[in-house]
Each structure stands twice: as structure tokens, then as C-alpha cells.
């Protein structure tokens, strides 16, 4: 596997962006992904982002901070981010590391994440009219 060539796809479906992270990321790739997603949000005016980390076997403090930073930045741009499918071992390790990621929305799987975003979007729609 050539780590130098890896790019993480960002898929747009309706109002949402789906980002399946399927490589063990180094720091530069993580930073790159963050700005890529933000640019894509601006470009597509997506209302929600699902970041699927179900195949990630490790999330260290850098990637953890990148993910929670991502959520706060997207929130300022009026977009919700949901982190989907974290593995139990990763969750335990993150908590022990001291990164409890308060304020970050999480979902057990893609389906639940999508439901969560839809709920958000709908309550916003009913609020505004």
C-alpha cells in the first residue's frame, strides 16, 4: 500500500456529504482531509456530514482533535457533523487518553447517523416556518 498516494473520497448525496475514512491516516493527511471537507461543504452547501470511521483501528489525540475541530468548524458554517461507527476499543482508548470529545455527535452506524442528520434538518425546517 502506498501511503503517499492515498486520498480519502468525499461523496455527496442530496444534502449530505459522506466521508468514509479507510486508511490509517498520518497527520498531514488528517489536516488535508479537514480542509478538503470544509471546502466541499462551502461548495456543495451540504447541510450535514457523515464521517465513517468504522474501519479505523486507532484514533490518537491528533486525529481525535481533528475530528472534533472539524465538527466545531462545520457548526460555524451551519452544518452538522456526525462521527459514525467508532470501534469499542477506539472509544475506550480515546476516553483513557483524555479525549472525551464533548459536543461531537456520534452514531452507531450509517443508518442511525443519517436519521440523526435528517431529524436535525427537519426540526430546523419546521422551526424556520
Amino acid at each position: 500500500m502506498n501511503l503517499h498516494e492515498k486520498r480519502i473520497p468525499i461523496i455527496k448525496i442530496h444534502d449530505y456529504l459522506i466521508v468514509p475514512i479507510q486508511v490509517d491516516m498520518h497527520d498531514k493527511l488528517a489536516i488535508q482531509l479537514q480542509s478538503q471537507i470544509l471546502e466541499e461543504i462551502a461548495k456543495t452547501r451540504a447541510k450535514g456530514v457523515l464521517i465513517d470511521i468504522s474501519v479505523l483501528e486507532m484514533v490518537d489525540s491528533f486525529i481525535g482533535r481533528m475530528l472534533s475541530g472539524m465538527a466545531s468548524m462545520a457548526a460555524i458554517m451551519d452544518t452538522s457533523v456526525v462521527i459514525v461507527g467508532m470501534q469499542p476499543a477506539v472509544a475506550i482508548t480515546l476516553v483513557e487518553l483524555g479525549l472525551e470529545m464533548p459536543g461531537v455527535d456520534t452514531a452507531l452506524n450509517m443508518e442511525k447517523g443519517m436519521e440523526m442528520l435528517e431529524r436535525r434538518l427537519n426540526s430546523r425546517k419546521t422551526d424556520s416556518f
Binding site: 467508532m86 475506550i92 472525551e100
Partner: peptide
């Protein structure tokens, strides 16, 4: 406490 926090990270 850790269990509850970890469960939240999973989305539960």
C-alpha cells in the same frame, strides 16, 4: 464513568 463516556463516543 469511562463506560458511559465510551458508549457516548460510539453513539449510544
Amino acid at each position: 464513568l469511562k463506560t458511559v463516556t465510551a458508549a457516548r463516543l460510539l453513539g449510544a
